[in-house]
Amino acid sequence: MNRSLFAIENLCYLQNGPYSFTIDEHEIIGLSGASGVGKTQLLRAMVETILYSGSLYFKGQKPEKFSPSQWRRLISLVPAESMWWGEYVSDHFPDEETEVILATLLEELGFTPEIVSWQVERLSTGERQRLALARALVLQPAVLLLDEPCSALDSQSTELVETLLLRYRQRSETALIWVSHDEEQLKRVADRCFQVDQRGLHVRW
């Protein structure tokens, strides 16, 4: 247990569970399952924004060992549909220390550096989705929880995102949990894959 990077043990929420698995450094776990089965809720439970029972471990340590902010910077959820609160893109990247990382990220996601001065209103759905990914990645989380990260993207942007994420996982102490409805995509990116239903996880490969 202590050797793995991140683990969930008998995790239950609402009518769902128990779910258990462990994920190691550099690993990508794919999650598939019917719409409405509770995949998003499963991710939300891992970042403690819904009530759950059971245990979560980051390198053998429970969330209570960390402040809620620290936990969510280690285990970061990227939502399928992003919300934006500031007027400009730059309002959502307040941390000046991460400027260099951000510049690289934006380039890798196919943006020009000027995008940060844009008004959020001008962004397309696909641009928002890629920027939401950048928003989480600048914080350099250890475990990235991706809720259909390419649902609004064309094939070209999908490829950019996949390439970026496959490179991101090379960092030490990094793992990805990737929810997708796209079978082909999961086959391309995931080392292991689980089918999620209300009762638990079923190994697909």
Partner: peptide, 20 residues
């Protein structure tokens, strides 16, 4: 509520996420 939650995902405190 969704917006607040997404700010929390980024590690913001509840005070910051509900500031506006």
């Amino acid at each position: 509520r969704n917006l607040i939650e997404q700010r929390l995902y980024l590690g913001e405190t509840w005070q910051r996420a509900s500031e506006d």
